[in-house]
Design a protein around this nucleic acid. Sequence first.
DNA 1: CTGATTTATGAAATCGATTTCACATTTGGG
DNA 2: CCCAAATGTGAAATCGATTTCATAAATCAG
Lengths: 337, 337
Amino acid sequence: MDVKIVDVAMIAGVSPATVSRVLNHTSKVSARTRDKVMRAIEELGYHPNAAAKNLRSQRTMTIGVIVPDINNSYFAEIIKGIENIAYAQHYKIIICDTQNQKEREAEYLNLLLDRTIDGAIILTPLVEDQELIELADKGYRLGVVGKYVKHDQVPCIYTDNVKFSQEVVQHLVDQGHRDIVFLSGYADAVDSYERLEGYLKALRSHHIPFRPELVENGNFNEQGGYEAMKRLFEKRLSFTAVYAANDEMALGVYQACAEYGMRIPDQLAVVGVDNNRISRYIQPTLSSVDQPKYTMGAILAEKLIDMMNHNEFAHQRVFRIDSTLLIRESSAYQRKS
Amino acid sequence: MDVKIVDVAMIAGVSPATVSRVLNHTSKVSARTRDKVMRAIEELGYHPNAAAKNLRSQRTMTIGVIVPDINNSYFAEIIKGIENIAYAQHYKIIICDTQNQKEREAEYLNLLLDRTIDGAIILTPLVEDQELIELADKGYRLGVVGKYVKHDQVPCIYTDNVKFSQEVVQHLVDQGHRDIVFLSGYADAVDSYERLEGYLKALRSHHIPFRPELVENGNFNEQGGYEAMKRLFEKRLSFTAVYAANDEMALGVYQACAEYGMRIPDQLAVVGVDNNRISRYIQPTLSSVDQPKYTMGAILAEKLIDMMNHNEFAHQRVFRIDSTLLIRESSAYQRKS
DNA sequence: CTGATTTATGAAATCGATTTCACATTTGGG
DNA sequence: CCCAAATGTGAAATCGATTTCATAAATCAG
């Protein structure tokens, strides 16, 4: 049914090899034959079969992007960055949404093994580093956004969680807060424990004693943040500020505050992370840490593609990117001490 | 370097054909040989090469999803619906973000022609129906979300733009408005002109004369909505309500209102479409038309996969889904007449 | 126990491109 | 004007699976 390379060759009066050469510019072809071939291709509406091409050339020009949740502007922005670079370099991307399930992530990594994709970019991986390292050891190409992975063939890009968490706490302390809640995501995520670490460091440097009861887990989503906050209110603990490990949970904090009649920011200051689009629209506007998402995606894609094309590894492969604390209304109230 | 089916066959002491049979359950294999084969596969860590498989079997078990902008929760939700169905049916999906460029959309449709994908789902296509129809005529499998396409091999699902637009206008009229702005997206998008059509119909049925100067184009994004609104304010036209063809543009309206000191909803009522997540968080909360996005994606994927699997076309292929007008604060102010 | 049927397996063809190798034809240097 | 190098092209091998066809072995009916 479909038209194949031999059909084109037949019409053009040349061999399939020559047609291939014309299409791939892989060796010199005289202007006359190139012409004949192009005309034949046009006439027949020929499109090279991708599977055959992939099989013979041992590459698919496809990158898999493994993401916990595409309906989250943080990831969507990163993907945009990846997609634009990939498109420019004639790579396709397969987006794999794991819906935050570790086993789906593992399953999608199999696309590397069966050679459906030439390489994979993983956004904040759920699987253990060890697994990624083993893949890289076997020569599979992968890159990581949002986490540092120790393997000299794995490019990665991330923001320094510890550092910006310290900045957040510093800011809250400057505003006169000492009793600061930390809302964490799932415990085994880097983003959780590193942000916690920064929080603890900052407390220490201000000689503020750590109160473990002020740390709660909100699973990185709005519902979780809401419930965590409710638990804190119910325990009647004293605190004047909340540092939520992402904006989603901060939204849950807003909701709980509305329910319990707490005013933001004068009764409770709130800071989140991700600079989710909503944080600019909600009332009061939400202070948040902004990461250059698009750029992160673009840089990593660039690097990975570079490695895949030249089959060598890059001079620089670890990128630690600076993030910016955006101070908005939710933390702009200065407490008298 | 990689382990191939012959290697497995060698170790298991059988022929490649038998290994293939074990893997694909394509004909009876004795328990003993199945065992040997499975052990060999395990031992060698064998993964069938996708390209070879695709080439021989003439299918890739992959669906392309072509979308104007993944960083838009409307599309992201639809994709979620598609992804979940696809995953359950062992299909992979390739997400292609066209960034609203017609030529990219066309380029991505080539994935059908070169057999990279078995079928495509297009979310609110930019290309002409004619092009899609031609593809379908040639036997390529495709489905459409957000638009009706007249071809008995193309399943499609959409909400009735004309109908819900009439509802929106009806609601605004009920609130005492007669001078209602319509903010359109790009003119050649179905969603634009059908929503305009509903707007016009509603006006007619209320014997409200149509004022062409109250129709502006905002390109479906926030910036466009903002600029369109500014133009209207600058012209000093009289109006008391805005129907924006999507929520993004409605956000632009909010921005313009803030700048021009217009209060929503008492000086200006606003209604949008899509029930973007932000519409619940912004102040005042934004009235909007909600479409069952996830479900739309899921139904269409189900249908398309069904057609691909059984290679026959479905009994029902056109789905017109009901949408719901959610009335929130931005249009809840009753004008005295 | 014999011939017919079923079951389990292997050899070889096949999917549709790319690439190697060989060879004929030009081109160019002296 | 002749031989060496460069250029352009085709035949055939190849990528790694699936599938057809043939056949040996096992089962069954009478």
